[in-house]
Simulated scan of single mutants.
Amino acid sequence: MENEKHDLMRTIQIKFPRLSKGQKLIAEYILKHYDKAAFMTASKLGISVGVSESTVVRFANELGFSGYPKLQKALQELIKNKLTTVQRIELSNAFISEEDSLKGVLKADMENIRVTLEKINQNTFNEVINSIFAAKRIYIIGLRSSTALSEFLGFYLNLILDNVHVINYGISDIFEQIINISSDDLLIGIGFPRYAARTIEALSFAKSRSTKVVAITDSLLSPLATEADYTLIAQSNMASFVDSLVAPLSVINALIVAVGLKEKHKISKTFSDLENIWEEYRVYSYKNMEDK
Protein backbone atom coordinates (compact mmCIF):
# COMPACT_ATOMS: atom_id res chain seq x y z
CA MET A 1 0.00 0.00 0.00
CA GLU A 2 2.74 2.47 0.96
CA ASN A 3 4.67 1.63 -2.23
CA GLU A 4 1.58 2.27 -4.37
CA LYS A 5 1.03 5.60 -2.65
CA HIS A 6 4.68 6.52 -3.12
CA ASP A 7 4.54 5.59 -6.84
CA LEU A 8 1.46 7.71 -7.58
CA MET A 9 2.70 10.72 -5.61
CA ARG A 10 6.15 10.34 -7.16
CA THR A 11 4.62 10.31 -10.65
CA ILE A 12 2.83 13.58 -9.87
CA GLN A 13 6.10 15.10 -8.59
CA ILE A 14 8.09 13.97 -11.64
CA LYS A 15 5.52 15.33 -14.10
CA PHE A 16 4.96 18.54 -12.12
CA PRO A 17 7.45 20.78 -14.04
CA ARG A 18 5.75 19.96 -17.38
CA LEU A 19 2.20 20.58 -16.17
CA SER A 20 0.18 23.64 -17.13
CA LYS A 21 -0.46 26.33 -14.53
CA GLY A 22 -3.95 24.98 -13.81
CA GLN A 23 -2.74 21.38 -13.63
CA LYS A 24 -0.03 22.38 -11.15
CA LEU A 25 -2.74 23.73 -8.85
CA ILE A 26 -4.48 20.34 -9.01
CA ALA A 27 -1.21 18.48 -8.39
CA GLU A 28 -0.41 20.61 -5.35
CA TYR A 29 -3.87 20.06 -3.92
CA ILE A 30 -3.71 16.27 -4.39
CA LEU A 31 -0.22 16.03 -2.89
CA LYS A 32 -1.43 17.87 0.21
CA HIS A 33 -5.02 16.61 0.44
CA TYR A 34 -5.20 13.33 -1.49
CA ASP A 35 -7.53 11.85 1.17
CA LYS A 36 -10.14 14.51 0.38
CA ALA A 37 -9.52 14.61 -3.39
CA ALA A 38 -10.25 10.88 -3.60
CA PHE A 39 -13.93 11.55 -2.92
CA MET A 40 -14.35 14.64 -5.09
CA THR A 41 -15.90 14.66 -8.53
CA ALA A 42 -13.85 16.26 -11.30
CA SER A 43 -16.13 19.28 -11.12
CA LYS A 44 -15.80 19.67 -7.35
CA LEU A 45 -12.02 19.25 -7.47
CA GLY A 46 -11.86 21.91 -10.17
CA ILE A 47 -13.96 24.32 -8.11
CA SER A 48 -11.79 23.67 -5.04
CA VAL A 49 -8.58 24.67 -6.82
CA GLY A 50 -10.07 27.25 -9.21
CA VAL A 51 -9.80 25.45 -12.56
CA SER A 52 -12.25 23.99 -15.08
CA GLU A 53 -13.51 20.41 -15.03
CA SER A 54 -11.82 19.80 -18.39
CA THR A 55 -8.48 20.82 -16.86
CA VAL A 56 -8.96 18.16 -14.17
CA VAL A 57 -9.67 15.55 -16.85
CA ARG A 58 -6.57 16.56 -18.82
CA PHE A 59 -4.53 16.34 -15.60
CA ALA A 60 -5.66 12.72 -15.14
CA ASN A 61 -4.72 11.97 -18.75
CA GLU A 62 -1.30 13.56 -18.21
CA LEU A 63 -0.69 11.09 -15.35
CA GLY A 64 -1.48 8.17 -17.66
CA PHE A 65 -5.10 7.53 -16.67
CA SER A 66 -7.81 7.09 -19.32
CA GLY A 67 -10.04 9.50 -17.42
CA TYR A 68 -10.60 11.19 -14.09
CA PRO A 69 -12.65 8.29 -12.62
CA LYS A 70 -9.57 6.05 -12.99
CA LEU A 71 -7.41 8.54 -11.08
CA GLN A 72 -10.12 8.92 -8.44
CA LYS A 73 -10.33 5.15 -8.01
CA ALA A 74 -6.55 4.92 -7.64
CA LEU A 75 -6.65 7.55 -4.90
CA GLN A 76 -9.54 5.79 -3.12
CA GLU A 77 -7.70 2.47 -3.17
CA LEU A 78 -4.72 4.18 -1.53
CA ILE A 79 -6.56 5.78 1.34
CA LYS A 80 -9.71 3.81 2.09
CA ASN A 81 -8.00 1.61 4.68
CA LYS A 82 -5.93 4.49 6.07
CA LEU A 83 -8.61 7.04 6.90
CA THR A 84 -8.97 7.64 10.61
CA THR A 85 -12.37 8.33 12.14
CA VAL A 86 -11.41 12.00 12.50
CA GLN A 87 -10.61 12.21 8.79
CA ARG A 88 -13.93 10.54 7.97
CA ILE A 89 -15.77 13.14 10.02
CA GLU A 90 -13.98 15.88 8.05
CA LEU A 91 -15.05 14.20 4.80
CA SER A 92 -18.63 14.00 6.02
CA ASN A 93 -18.62 17.73 6.69
CA ALA A 94 -17.14 18.43 3.26
CA PHE A 95 -19.41 16.24 1.14
CA ILE A 96 -22.63 15.61 3.07
CA SER A 97 -24.40 18.69 4.36
CA GLU A 98 -26.68 18.54 7.37
CA GLU A 99 -29.64 19.50 5.17
CA ASP A 100 -28.90 16.83 2.54
CA SER A 101 -27.78 14.01 4.85
CA LEU A 102 -30.92 11.89 4.33
CA LYS A 103 -30.93 12.00 0.53
CA GLY A 104 -27.14 11.96 0.30
CA VAL A 105 -26.73 8.80 2.36
CA LEU A 106 -29.68 6.99 0.73
CA LYS A 107 -28.37 7.77 -2.76
CA ALA A 108 -24.89 6.58 -1.79
CA ASP A 109 -26.31 3.31 -0.45
CA MET A 110 -28.36 2.82 -3.62
CA GLU A 111 -25.21 3.29 -5.66
CA ASN A 112 -23.36 0.75 -3.50
CA ILE A 113 -26.07 -1.85 -4.15
CA ARG A 114 -26.05 -1.08 -7.89
CA VAL A 115 -22.28 -1.52 -8.14
CA THR A 116 -22.44 -4.68 -5.99
CA LEU A 117 -24.99 -6.19 -8.36
CA GLU A 118 -22.61 -5.55 -11.25
CA LYS A 119 -19.50 -6.88 -9.49
CA ILE A 120 -20.71 -9.95 -7.62
CA ASN A 121 -20.10 -13.28 -9.31
CA GLN A 122 -23.13 -15.60 -9.47
CA ASN A 123 -20.98 -18.72 -9.87
CA THR A 124 -18.96 -17.81 -6.78
CA PHE A 125 -22.21 -17.19 -4.89
CA ASN A 126 -23.44 -20.67 -5.87
CA GLU A 127 -20.14 -22.23 -4.78
CA VAL A 128 -20.46 -20.55 -1.40
CA ILE A 129 -23.95 -22.02 -0.95
CA ASN A 130 -22.62 -25.47 -1.84
CA SER A 131 -19.76 -25.04 0.63
CA ILE A 132 -22.19 -24.14 3.41
CA PHE A 133 -24.06 -27.40 2.95
CA ALA A 134 -20.87 -29.43 2.56
CA ALA A 135 -19.30 -28.15 5.78
CA LYS A 136 -19.25 -30.15 8.99
CA ARG A 137 -19.16 -26.92 11.01
CA ILE A 138 -19.64 -23.33 9.89
CA TYR A 139 -17.75 -20.56 11.66
CA ILE A 140 -18.60 -16.89 11.09
CA ILE A 141 -16.35 -14.00 12.06
CA GLY A 142 -16.87 -10.27 11.60
CA LEU A 143 -15.40 -7.86 14.11
CA ARG A 144 -15.68 -4.15 14.88
CA SER A 145 -18.41 -2.63 12.66
CA SER A 146 -18.83 -5.97 10.86
CA THR A 147 -20.00 -7.60 14.11
CA ALA A 148 -23.58 -6.62 13.25
CA LEU A 149 -23.28 -8.44 9.92
CA SER A 150 -21.80 -11.63 11.39
CA GLU A 151 -24.43 -11.74 14.16
CA PHE A 152 -27.23 -11.25 11.63
CA LEU A 153 -25.91 -14.01 9.35
CA GLY A 154 -25.33 -16.31 12.32
CA PHE A 155 -28.79 -15.67 13.77
CA TYR A 156 -30.63 -16.75 10.62
CA LEU A 157 -28.31 -19.59 9.63
CA ASN A 158 -28.75 -21.00 13.14
CA LEU A 159 -32.50 -21.18 12.53
CA ILE A 160 -31.94 -23.18 9.36
CA LEU A 161 -28.87 -25.27 10.19
CA ASP A 162 -27.54 -26.75 13.43
CA ASN A 163 -23.78 -26.42 12.92
CA VAL A 164 -23.22 -22.65 12.95
CA HIS A 165 -20.84 -20.87 15.35
CA VAL A 166 -20.43 -17.09 15.50
CA ILE A 167 -16.96 -16.04 16.67
CA ASN A 168 -16.81 -12.87 18.75
CA TYR A 169 -14.99 -11.11 21.54
CA GLY A 170 -15.79 -12.52 24.96
CA ILE A 171 -14.21 -14.46 27.78
CA SER A 172 -12.27 -16.63 25.33
CA ASP A 173 -9.86 -15.40 22.68
CA ILE A 174 -10.71 -15.62 18.98
CA PHE A 175 -8.24 -18.46 18.45
CA GLU A 176 -9.61 -20.46 21.37
CA GLN A 177 -13.00 -20.42 19.65
CA ILE A 178 -11.59 -21.92 16.44
CA ILE A 179 -8.88 -24.15 17.92
CA ASN A 180 -10.58 -27.30 16.61
CA ILE A 181 -11.31 -25.97 13.12
CA SER A 182 -10.42 -28.46 10.39
CA SER A 183 -10.48 -29.18 6.68
CA ASP A 184 -14.08 -30.41 7.03
CA ASP A 185 -15.24 -26.98 8.17
CA LEU A 186 -16.03 -23.61 6.61
CA LEU A 187 -15.05 -20.16 7.88
CA ILE A 188 -16.97 -17.11 6.64
CA GLY A 189 -15.02 -13.90 7.27
CA ILE A 190 -16.67 -10.50 6.96
CA GLY A 191 -14.63 -7.31 6.84
CA PHE A 192 -14.58 -3.84 5.29
CA PRO A 193 -12.23 -0.85 5.55
CA ARG A 194 -10.78 -0.32 8.03
CA TYR A 195 -10.18 -4.08 8.15
CA ALA A 196 -10.01 -5.63 11.62
CA ALA A 197 -6.58 -7.26 12.04
CA ARG A 198 -7.99 -10.10 14.15
CA THR A 199 -10.39 -11.13 11.38
CA ILE A 200 -7.53 -11.42 8.90
CA GLU A 201 -5.50 -13.44 11.40
CA ALA A 202 -8.43 -15.80 11.98
CA LEU A 203 -8.77 -16.41 8.23
CA SER A 204 -5.04 -17.03 7.96
CA PHE A 205 -5.18 -19.50 10.86
CA ALA A 206 -8.10 -21.34 9.22
CA LYS A 207 -6.14 -21.60 5.95
CA SER A 208 -3.24 -23.15 7.87
CA ARG A 209 -5.71 -25.87 8.97
CA SER A 210 -6.83 -26.41 5.34
CA THR A 211 -10.26 -25.02 6.17
CA LYS A 212 -12.31 -23.66 3.28
CA VAL A 213 -12.61 -19.87 3.65
CA VAL A 214 -15.23 -17.47 2.32
CA ALA A 215 -14.69 -13.71 2.46
CA ILE A 216 -17.44 -11.12 2.27
CA THR A 217 -15.54 -7.91 1.64
CA ASP A 218 -15.28 -4.86 -0.62
CA SER A 219 -12.60 -5.86 -3.13
CA LEU A 220 -10.49 -8.70 -4.47
CA LEU A 221 -7.56 -6.61 -3.24
CA SER A 222 -8.90 -6.78 0.33
CA PRO A 223 -6.62 -8.60 2.81
CA LEU A 224 -9.56 -10.91 3.55
CA ALA A 225 -9.80 -11.88 -0.12
CA THR A 226 -6.14 -12.91 -0.23
CA GLU A 227 -6.88 -15.53 2.44
CA ALA A 228 -10.14 -16.78 0.88
CA ASP A 229 -11.11 -19.60 -1.46
CA TYR A 230 -14.26 -17.69 -2.43
CA THR A 231 -14.85 -13.95 -2.25
CA LEU A 232 -18.21 -12.20 -2.42
CA ILE A 233 -17.78 -8.53 -3.29
CA ALA A 234 -20.05 -5.94 -1.70
CA GLN A 235 -19.31 -2.24 -2.13
CA SER A 236 -19.16 -0.20 1.06
CA ASN A 237 -17.98 3.23 -0.12
CA MET A 238 -19.14 6.09 2.09
CA ALA A 239 -17.53 9.49 2.58
CA SER A 240 -18.50 9.42 6.23
CA PHE A 241 -17.38 8.26 9.67
CA VAL A 242 -20.16 5.65 9.45
CA ASP A 243 -19.44 2.49 7.45
CA SER A 244 -21.98 1.76 4.73
CA LEU A 245 -23.13 -1.80 5.37
CA VAL A 246 -26.28 -1.75 3.24
CA ALA A 247 -24.84 -3.62 0.23
CA PRO A 248 -22.99 -6.18 2.41
CA LEU A 249 -26.21 -6.83 4.34
CA SER A 250 -28.08 -7.29 1.07
CA VAL A 251 -25.56 -9.93 -0.03
CA ILE A 252 -25.92 -11.65 3.35
CA ASN A 253 -29.71 -11.57 2.97
CA ALA A 254 -29.31 -13.29 -0.40
CA LEU A 255 -27.13 -15.99 1.20
CA ILE A 256 -29.71 -16.63 3.92
CA VAL A 257 -32.58 -16.81 1.43
CA ALA A 258 -30.63 -19.16 -0.87
CA VAL A 259 -29.81 -21.50 2.04
CA GLY A 260 -33.42 -21.33 3.25
CA LEU A 261 -34.81 -22.24 -0.17
CA LYS A 262 -32.77 -25.44 -0.08
CA GLU A 263 -34.18 -26.27 3.35
CA LYS A 264 -37.79 -25.18 2.85
CA HIS A 265 -39.43 -28.04 4.72
CA LYS A 266 -37.07 -27.79 7.68
CA ILE A 267 -37.46 -24.05 8.17
CA SER A 268 -41.22 -24.33 7.80
CA LYS A 269 -41.31 -26.69 10.80
CA THR A 270 -38.76 -24.59 12.70
CA PHE A 271 -40.74 -21.39 12.35
CA SER A 272 -43.99 -23.18 13.13
CA ASP A 273 -42.45 -24.36 16.42
CA LEU A 274 -41.01 -20.93 17.08
CA GLU A 275 -44.37 -19.24 16.61
CA ASN A 276 -45.81 -21.44 19.35
CA ILE A 277 -42.85 -20.71 21.64
CA TRP A 278 -42.99 -16.97 20.94
CA GLU A 279 -46.68 -16.87 21.78
CA GLU A 280 -46.37 -19.02 24.90
CA TYR A 281 -43.48 -17.02 26.32
CA ARG A 282 -44.70 -13.63 25.12
CA VAL A 283 -41.57 -12.95 23.05
CA TYR A 284 -43.48 -10.46 20.93
CA SER A 285 -46.26 -8.07 21.79
CA TYR A 286 -49.67 -9.42 20.83
CA LYS A 287 -51.58 -6.42 22.17
CA ASN A 288 -52.84 -5.18 18.81
CA MET A 289 -53.95 -8.66 17.81
CA GLU A 290 -55.87 -9.04 21.09
CA ASP A 291 -57.55 -5.66 20.60
CA LYS A 292 -58.91 -6.90 17.31
Score class of each variant (00 low, 15 high):
Ser150Met: 02
Val246Ser: 10
Leu274Ile: 08
Leu153Asp: 04
Lys24Phe: 06
Ile14Pro: 02
Glu77Arg: 09
Phe65Trp: 01
Ala197Lys: 15
Ser172Asp: 14
Tyr230Gly: 06
Gly22Val: 03
Ile89Cys: 02
Met40Gln: 11
Ile120Val: 15
Ser131Phe: 04
Ile267Thr: 07
Val251Met: 08
Ser48Met: 14
Asn93His: 13
Asn81Ala: 09
Ala60Ser: 14
Arg114Lys: 12
Ser268Trp: 06
Ile113Arg: 05
Arg88Thr: 03
Gly154Phe: 08
Leu8Asp: 02
Val51Trp: 05
Ile113Tyr: 05
Glu279Tyr: 12
Lys73Cys: 09
Val214Leu: 01
Ser54Gln: 15
Thr85Ile: 10
Arg18Glu: 13
Asn112Met: 08
Phe205Arg: 04
Lys266Leu: 12
Ser204Arg: 11
Met1Arg: 08
Tyr169Cys: 06
Ile174Asp: 07
Gly50Ala: 02
Leu91Glu: 03
Val214Ala: 07
Asp7Gly: 00
Val242Arg: 06
Met1Asn: 06
Thr41Ser: 15
Val213Lys: 07
Leu261Thr: 12
Phe125Val: 10
Tyr29Leu: 04
Ala108Cys: 08
Val105Ser: 09
Gln23Glu: 11
Arg198Lys: 13
Thr226Gln: 10
Gly154Leu: 08
Gly154Ala: 10
Lys119Cys: 07
Glu111Lys: 13
Thr11Asp: 10
Asn163Leu: 04
Leu25Tyr: 03
Lys262Ala: 06
Gly67His: 09
Tyr139Leu: 06
Glu176Ser: 15
Ser182Glu: 08
Pro193Gly: 01
Gly260Arg: 01
Glu98Gln: 13
Lys80Ala: 09
Leu45Ile: 05
Asn158His: 13
Gln23Gly: 00
Phe271Tyr: 15
Gln235Thr: 12
Lys207Thr: 03
Ala196Phe: 08
Tyr284Asp: 13
Pro193Met: 00
Asp162Gln: 07
Lys70Val: 08
Gln23Tyr: 00
Ser244Met: 02
